[in-house]
Design a protein around this nucleic acid. Sequence first.
DNA 1: TCTTAAATATGATTTTTATCATGTTTTAAC
DNA 2: GTTAAAACATGATAAAAATCATATTTAAGA
Lengths: 143, 143
Amino acid sequence: MLSNSSKYAVKAVLYLAIHSHKNKKIMAKDIAESINVPQAYLAKLLQELSREEIITSVKGPKGGFYLSDDNRNFSLMDVVNVIDGDKRLNSCVLSLEKCNAEKPCPLHNLISPSKSVFMESLQKKKIKYFSKQIEEGSAFLPL
Amino acid sequence: MLSNSSKYAVKAVLYLAIHSHKNKKIMAKDIAESINVPQAYLAKLLQELSREEIITSVKGPKGGFYLSDDNRNFSLMDVVNVIDGDKRLNSCVLSLEKCNAEKPCPLHNLISPSKSVFMESLQKKKIKYFSKQIEEGSAFLPL
DNA sequence: TCTTAAATATGATTTTTATCATGTTTTAAC
DNA sequence: GTTAAAACATGATAAAAATCATATTTAAGA
Ligand code: FES
Ligand code: FES
């Protein structure tokens, strides 16, 4: 479904959504510790996200990562696409070339409706939505 | 979601469900070719399934694999469990220890209902069900 | 009984994914 | 300007997954 890498990326972005701010940057090391992900590995992922402007970074002392208001309007699908590419989630459960309703694999009807719903939410709901969920206590983040 | 290996295994089992019979055994090599999976790799998977008695094998000349009536009463979940173990499908999308409703991750509510449905069907529907689908032309198998 | 065709067992290799390490650039603070 | 703290870039290593290779066992058929 999601690679380990994009799981890490999603967790990091959500962490930033809750804890960071334009004038409260957080360094890679601290994020990594908080979300239980290897530091150097996460650093690399954060760089990719920053390069694609999904998150914002500031170099030098007092620097770090944070989510701007613009950043918060991205969807988690955007995060996943940066890390995993856009084919992974779209593929058939049995990897039969393309997942399509015209030539469905035997599992297609079992999973496709629900998966579509999932992917649409992931696409449509902005990062803001999820941070609100967490702040309201209806969803949880740490390990 | 599913490992490559269990995708192969599922495809092979479904192939056997449609094409094999007590007196129509099929060798690993032929199955592999038909479902587009590397021969030696599939052979190994078939051996695991055979060892767990999800499929039936006969050694020696004129031997091969087939699905007995008993075999056809297994579910695809059984197939997946033999290959991937039973934790993989049960895990949280974000890999937050355990997926449970009490402490749901931010994606839990998005995916869990649909995933439950999927897993239940995978558990409850027998191999027979899927082969019927394919025979009726409402689902497709090859590449 | 001998040969041969199949599964089975075991392990080696390759590829992919995840992880670690090290040097370079930027910039705030002194 | 010098120092130091951060991101950034690049590549090396390790672990896991997928793939390949080879020798052994079983049983049909001549
Ligand atoms: S064709 Fe397999 S999931 Fe859609
Ligand atoms: S807790 Fe993450 S999917 Fe259930």
